[in-house]
Write a protein that binds this DNA or RNA. Sequence first.
DNA 1: CGGGTTTTCGACTTAGGATCGAAAACATGG
DNA 2: CCATGTTTTCGATCCTAAGTCGAAAACCCG
Lengths: 239, 239
Amino acid sequence: MADGISRSGGTEHEVLAAVLQVRVGSLQVLLWQRAREPHAGRWALPGGRLRPTEDVETSIRRQLAEKVDVQQLAHVEQLAVFSAPDRVPRPPRVVATAFLGLVPCDVDPAVPADTAWHQVAELPPTAFDHGAIVLRARNRLRAKLSYTNLGFALAPRKFTVSALRALYSAALGYRVSATNLQRVLSRRGLLEPTGHTAPSGPSGGRPAALFRFTGKGLEVTDPFAVLRPPRAAKDDAGE
Amino acid sequence: MADGISRSGGTEHEVLAAVLQVRVGSLQVLLWQRAREPHAGRWALPGGRLRPTEDVETSIRRQLAEKVDVQQLAHVEQLAVFSAPDRVPRPPRVVATAFLGLVPCDVDPAVPADTAWHQVAELPPTAFDHGAIVLRARNRLRAKLSYTNLGFALAPRKFTVSALRALYSAALGYRVSATNLQRVLSRRGLLEPTGHTAPSGPSGGRPAALFRFTGKGLEVTDPFAVLRPPRAAKDDAGE
DNA sequence: CGGGTTTTCGACTTAGGATCGAAAACATGG
DNA sequence: CCATGTTTTCGATCCTAAGTCGAAAACCCG
């Protein structure tokens, strides 16, 4: 049976990350343009091969911090394994562990010359199966925005409700009501007023109050009822 | 940068599955007892090494169908990658893609002599990191029972509401109300009466109506509101 | 046919999301 | 300095859906 201890070889393992950020009102992903074959000229996700002494989480963080200057990732989580035998054209066969990474919208990390942000809704030609990975990342983000407080990873430390509304709208792809957003997040105990206000815009208007997310880690905000243990129990739930 | 095309070697890839089933009122997992070192005598998850021509989904299905007789899996999904460098004691290093498998409670697949079901709540000594994988699988199941119709994978094709209640209770680990369960699932359009009734038990009582799950695939049943696109949009959402 | 048992269904309560509109707070121009 | 326009904020209301309870229905048995 499964022994987990023997030799076959021929299978490489790489880690990839779809790093998402809301920029100028749209959800974008960090891609770099391949110079060499295969798929020269196409756009690929940052990442690289797994080293013998690191686990996949450590590896993707190293690759992102090292090759692309992205220290300020607010969140990183496993997405899925992509393992179609022909996902890279030539041998050796490469299995990829894909990650979702999120960057707050108030930073603009320096990136190498071959690297750029692209709208998720309008991807350039992508290398290998990276296009599919980006879509999976977007879907995961959208789902989790609804039932977790993952939004904190897209927002600056302090923000106005309307700025947050713009973030959610961009990530989700449809309009959201600022009123409702604030009330929902507040009642879940995720939103907290800082007491300060932002300067009002060039066309006047009431100055907006600044909020921050409360440090609640990454909790599932009450998935459903069906049967709720009176008021307790909440393991990782995770992905 | 990440090329995904070059050689390093030394990293194996295996697939593992935590196959869960509700048996005699408790959530159990399929394990086999290792005969050889390392970890001889401890209990391990079914699985094995990834072959060069198959993806991980294909591989885990093959291994389960081949080595342990489990054709009737109602559901299989990726769980996570486990990649701690020392997760298996001796080199070569082995990265594992773990799966969650679900078996309806009305079947009792034949298993080899070294294989048995164990209560998830009371695991025997497990090999490698397999204990942690089982817990992750249980948590994933619990979370998804709330906001998807994953319950269908634990239930027989036809069932009574009280049987379904027992299933949910066992899987979730706390009592659930039959009344509410039926109403919630019905309103979500997941439950459908067959028109038939089950024979009443030995102590009498009103005969229970038989239900079945409607074939709605594996949908996320309205995660949250925050902002709902009027009534549409629902990609994979996935994990 | 009455007592015990289990299921089923309706009614009510409670919680939380969706919507709307008025009031508050600021800037600008006359 | 006031009227106007703009943006945010907050309360009030509506509505959907989950949580709870209890009575009625449907069966068995003696």
